[in-house]
Design a binder for these strands. Structure first.
Lengths: 213, 213
DNA sequence: ACAATAGTGTCTGTCAGACAATATACA
DNA sequence: TGTATATTGTCTGACAGACACTATTGT
């Protein structure tokens, strides 16, 4: 079981890597992962949350199964299967020792088939960003619509029409304005602050027609 | 490892069930499945193809990983994980003894969590039918455009505008007309016969904007 | 010629994107 | 009041769906 934990920092999508303590590949940076504990875990998703909690001290409201990776070559110890998940979190304050964020477009060569797993996660996340509310899970609350739009743009790698973006967010109906709360600071009109509606903290909503074709 | 093998018969989506020979649930109808053979199988998809070949004597050009299912309750023998796949084939001539097609909307209660696995497969197939070439794998070649449209309509459960359908197939560019080949038989204009273009036998193509929103 | 289905041309409503106008903060 | 960004209003082009027309077979 492996987890691709993603966040957005400095306008860049970043993946969390952990220095491995045991062989094989001790000392190398790799995805957080572990084995299922049959006594504790109700399923593999449970195991993924447990790994995030134990190794990083965090819970991820949004966790989605990515795919399973299997074969004789992925682990030097022999034939293996791993169920991979991905999780999205807002930028974190501090990380435990041995953990670090790495921008996804400048990753070191990863052990096992973790490179392929990250690639699959990126493809899934970018694809779903086109037609779902998935990116809201990367945005620290409360957030403004322009901030959220910047998150979408970072993921999609292209600029989005602001009018279309507002219409789409309205249609998705996943975020709600916080009554009376406005951003402040700049020498300009403040923006309405929003939060994710409770029922979509752990789920997402899709629309038929996405932001881009 | 379990496989949801789907076909279209009598305008109905059907799933292949196999009478189990061993415990648990010996005698019950269940999805074809089996364990990975580490010597033979390069990965779980390989194992799925091997099961289809050994138990049903067929190869499925299109096979897609669905998801993994895990937990303590899915198998009476204890905690287990299964990587599920789904495959699409045109209607088959004959089945080995113990195997039968069952319409997906009138399934018996299935052992293990095979009911959930089938449900997940149906959701995936129906969803992808909206915006991809996936349904062509259910159509026996050669086929006419009206025949293919009927397959899409059976999957989506609603009628499709014929003009839009032609435009969409043209855009997908996954099928090609067979030069000089026309359907025959009816007392009406014959239809152009098509086949799947070689490079899309095992893959599919998606479009941004689907057939329905 | 008629019946029946295949395939095409064209119009129209809908919706994403462009552009412009308005709103509201701080300096 | 000026500047900068937020937010809204309106127009326009592209495209899915509707409809009507043409094409081609067997009877």
């Amino acid at each position: 079981m492996d987890v691709v934990l993603l966040t957005l920092q400095e306008g860049q999508l970043q993946v969390l890597l952990l220095k491995r303590e045991r062989e094989p590949f001790a000392g190398a940076l790799a995805l957080p992962g572990g084995y299922v504990h049959e006594q504790e875990d109700q399923d593999c998703a449970d195991a993924a949350q447990r790994v995030l909690r134990d190794k990083l001290g965090l819970q991820s409201p949004y966790l989605e199964q990515l795919a399973s990776f299997s074969g004789p070559g992925r682990d030097p110890r022999g034939w293996s299967v791993s169920v991979a998940f991905f999780a999205l979190v807002p930028a974190l304050a501090d990380l435990p020792p041995g953990a670090q964020w790495r921008p996804v477009n400048r990753l070191p060569t990863l052990p096992f088939d973790h490179g392929s797993i990250v690639a699959a996660a990126l493809e899934r996340v970018r694809s779903k960003s086109q037609y779902s509310s998935l990116p809201v899970h990367l945005c620290p609350e409360p957030f403004t619509l322009p901030q959220l739009q910047a998150v979408y743009e970072a993921l999609l790698g292209e600029s989005i029409n602001a009018v279309s973006f507002r219409r789409k967010m309205d249609e998705l109906d996943v975020i709600e304005p916080i009554p009376g709360a406005k951003s402040s600071g700049g020498a300009h009109r403040p923006a309405q602050l929003y939060r994710v509606r409770g029922e979509f903290r752990e789920r997402l909503r899709v629309v038929g027609r996405g932001l881009k074709a």
